[in-house]
Amino acid sequence: SEIEGEVDKATNPSNRQEDWEYIIGFCDQINKELEGPQIAVRLLAHKIQSPQEWEAVQALTVLEACMKNCGRRFHNEVGKFRFLNELIKVVSPKYLGDRVSEKVKTKVIELLYSWTVALPEESKIKDAYYMLKRQGIVMFDPVIPADRTLIPSPPPRPKNP
């Protein structure tokens, strides 16, 4: 699928920095395909669990961008336990948590929390987040910088060189 090629480009560990051309290309591809969101979240879950930190960090940036740019269809897929469980595995010491960097775990928790605030209708996101709090995996709600809250605005495009 073209989506697979796009996610590989957007999360490639040899990218020197987050590549917004590829990230936007991935979002556009999701919006074009009927099954785009379902395929995308499955691929992203796999990348987020990468043992390479930089690949995982880029995948989380892509996920955040998709939540801003791919609309309700994408929110609905993220709001299923099928996908949320893959994020829970990343932060839980019972699963991958002990092998995942703090940077990746912090970003996962920040994203989950920001969605509980921005998308209250996606009740499973709240269920997942509060389960992590009950388990003591999340000790306090993170402070989300204003520019990182989920508002449906286009992400910054790189300036022309």
Partner: peptide, 15 residues
């Protein structure tokens, strides 16, 4: 029907 069965199969990870 597909959506209903998908909903039934969608569970939070056991911890």
């Amino acid at each position: 029907l597909g959506e209903e069965s998908e909903e039934r199969d969608d569970h939070l990870l056991p911890m």
